[in-house]
Nucleic acid binder design. Sequence first.
DNA 1: CTTTAAGTTCCAAATAATGAAACTGTGTTT
DNA 2: AAACACAGTTTCATTATTTGGAACTTAAAG
Lengths: 275, 275
Amino acid sequence: MGGEQTPVAGDGTIGKACDVLDQVAAFARPVRFAELLESSDFPKATLYRFLQTLTNQGMLSYDPDRQTYTPGLRLVRLAHAAWTQSSLAPIARPFLDALSAETGETVHLAQLDASQVLYVDKRNAAQPVEMYSQAGKVGPAYCTGVGKAMMAYLDETALDRAVSQQSYHKFTDKTLTSEAALRADLDLIRSRGYAIDDEEHEPGIICIACPILTSGGRMLGAISVTGSTERMNFQQLETWVPRVRRVADQIGTEAQTWRFPETRLNADKDRIQAT
Amino acid sequence: MGGEQTPVAGDGTIGKACDVLDQVAAFARPVRFAELLESSDFPKATLYRFLQTLTNQGMLSYDPDRQTYTPGLRLVRLAHAAWTQSSLAPIARPFLDALSAETGETVHLAQLDASQVLYVDKRNAAQPVEMYSQAGKVGPAYCTGVGKAMMAYLDETALDRAVSQQSYHKFTDKTLTSEAALRADLDLIRSRGYAIDDEEHEPGIICIACPILTSGGRMLGAISVTGSTERMNFQQLETWVPRVRRVADQIGTEAQTWRFPETRLNADKDRIQAT
DNA sequence: CTTTAAGTTCCAAATAATGAAACTGTGTTT
DNA sequence: AAACACAGTTTCATTATTTGGAACTTAAAG
């Protein structure tokens, strides 16, 4: 399964440290030193010192019983800050609530991270949102509605990089599996103003997605409404397009206008009320 | 060499980079270069390059319109991995569900991170009191039930460090504000097996908390049941202690026994069902 | 058109990272 | 019990990166 390596290499020591973090995260389970060593380009001593330092910093966590590493708690703390300080997710929240209530369908808010789709928030008709089990997930960009909607509005440089970094795995027989096919679809998306995913990632799952843009044309993210072919077809799903586009525009405008509320030094985060 | 100057100890370049991340997160809002420079020990050029590199790595995110930095999306992705790979949170989940259903009160799962309480999971009360804490949030350790429960079971070295790192701000007139008072309470907690928070953090909020320990005595975290003085007193709340302790023990045992399920290389995480 | 502040680049000196090899400790085989 | 294999840890001379004062380039204010 190709493309798990970050060829971005550079950025000195910090870049290497981040690579190690990604590597640990990529295992999707607690991992031993020897396993990491095998899948790593670093020599033993170097990798060892990285793990020591990162663990010491709380970016990794080490289980002495099992002798395994996992991504650390400090990341959770920092991610919480990332989520709340973002100029997109907190703003979009009420809009997602509304959109979810109106459509009764699954709604996603996504951003682009390292040419991948990162789901930042979600409304599922049935289940309530659980922050770190649902948001934070990543998915492919070339075969999802939000992914294509976002890529379509990247500037040329970023687009080239993003397009070339996709892995083009054929999830279904409708998946676009070439750069050319993807670029053609992106052109279509730009002229139409929204993206569709016609079972390109999962059979039976279709969706429409709109980019979130600032007035200056900068792409911030995307939102989508997802349905299943068992319950609906594209005709029905596309009736939501104007609504979704309006919501996307509103979020884009607000995100641009919005200033972070002034925090008084004292009574800002004392509302924890939890022991 | 001495090196007594820096308030924040550094693990070389990586430690410094992490400090910068924390600093950005600590502002709790998008922050400009100049603001960071002012609150930083680093010289201009150094800080500048750190911000460049971290932004480039996705650990920070830069808003070109506003010229501000916030913690980056990559942290959200990594935190998601931290949450799912942790040997505590996923295991504790069903137990929290059960405890929440039985008690009808707010239930927290916390871990210790840098001598602070980090809330890792949470269940809201049936009759939701106004509550702002959420997963990822941090709180003080010296005046919360979970915080004291965890500190009481640290080994001597870690305890000394933790106790000395508390800020001892007097939130209410019942807050313990000295190292001596805290240590005395921790002794009591050890002999009793659970911690109480008697409005020490917020007026009207009381709670009982039990540590989660491995059979080897290693402290993994804590769980708590929180109530409000308007609806109940300690007599009532403490009837839950045996139940909470049993749950904590079960979680501790499972966390120790548990092996991460083998991941098939193929059909691992494609169940995203999101476009 | 100045002036001031904010952000960016340069480069020699200082510092930190590197990694081959040697070492330690633990558990297993002969 | 000695010999071995193995996973993890430490050492240290070499090499590469980081550092930060100062100079430079905008961008806004007077």
